[in-house]
Amino acid sequence: MKTEEIAKVLNAKELSAAGEHSSDKEYTMVFATDLMSDALAMIQNAPEQTVLLTGLCNAQALRTAQMLDLELIVIVRGKQPNDEIVEMGKDFGITVLTTPLTMYEACGVLYREGMRSIS
């Protein structure tokens, strides 16, 4: 799925965009967690195709994405990152979306759309 399609099905708002080229990118996998160490442990392949879904709305979510070379984070449960986090997203080239859906709902919707777990 493309970022725009993900945003649409999750009713999500885009807070920082990772450059123009990112809109054509295809994502195929999702990892959902509030624990960044679990993301750091589990996401080992194809980070460029992987979306991080998290309820963690702080700088560490962005740092974790940066370490893993992830390019798209979706923040769930309607949390609004502050300006510092949005700026970090822009600096790191990471697109940040925020959705009002719960983690469970967001996972369900993305699964229905064909997104799968990390391999």
Partner: peptide, 16 residues
Amino acid sequence: MELGFGAGMGLPNIKR
């Protein structure tokens, strides 16, 4: 925990 850590995966992650 508030930072998103404390999963007990730190040293295992480093070692791996």
